[in-house]
Amino acid sequence: MPSVSMTVNGKPVTGDVEARTLLVQFLRENLRLTGTHVGCDTSQCGACVVHIDGIAAKSCTTLALQCEGAKITTIEGLAEPNGPLHPMQEAFREHHGLQCGYCTPGMIMAALDIVRRKGNDLDEHTIREQLDGNLCRCTGYHNIVKAIAAGAKAMAKGGAPAQAAE
């Protein structure tokens, strides 16, 4: 089996994988980072969104081998261990932007990418359009939209980057 090396949440990791292994499988099964979820098999739901070199990507549609040398950030890497929550995480909690929690890691990672691309002052229409790649069955999106707008603002205030520190 070929070997692959990448940096995940700031730590260098190496693993032997079958060529067909997806990034999400590598994260969940090899590294036991189970915060990244799989909600579909056609790249529609976004539960698997992580950042690859600072840009949001669906880890269910990325081969692990494609990520040789890449810097990956998952939901587990967003806040420093024992440190405060990332403002976007905090905003989801404050605004009840989650119910069952399954889509949440992907939502938060996608939200950060919206901030990266569209800035910290986000209107409702922009957020709704930009969330096109993420499905939630619980919240009706109402509070997710509110959470992302508030999280984006809080990031500007606190100076938190849309890409987690590597």
Partner: peptide, 15 residues
């Protein structure tokens, strides 16, 4: 605010 949220927003939910 919900007790259960911390584990979900940090990827620590156990499904």
């Amino acid at each position: 605010r919900r007790k259960e949220d911390f584990r979900f927003i940090t990827g620590k939910g156990q499904y």
